[in-house]
Amino acid sequence: MLESSKGHVDLLLLSTLAQGPTHGYGLVEALRERSGGVFDFAEGTVYPALYRLERQGLVTSRWAEGQTRRRRLYRLTRRGRAELARERGAWEAYANAMRAVLA
């Protein structure tokens, strides 16, 4: 994973979960695909981040019966959506400022 993306893991996870509930593996895969392979996490790191978000009440999780085994599905909460909107706004302001300076 790029060093610079570490501080934005929460935003990346919340944003990915906004597409719909998924499990840890699905999150890692979606992040990799959507970023064109730039955000290539050490896959285990996603779980501590999810546990933290869950403790903060930004995501919720439950075991769901799959075809062959039980899987833990993560879902964005209402509070998580609000946090995502706030973080996204802050990130866009920062990115616009950087673009303006670098242009």
Binding site: Y25, E43, G44, Y47
Partner: peptide, 28 residues
């Protein structure tokens, strides 16, 4: 249980070296 599920999914999708992709057990 989540680690096991993750690794089983990784094997099912024929990912290259699932253990290395998961990361160092001790730091996890």
């Amino acid at each position: 249980a989540e680690v096991r599920d993750h690794l089983e999914e990784s094997v099912r999708r024929r990912d290259e070296d699932p253990a290395a992709r998961f990361g160092e057990p001790r730091s996890f």
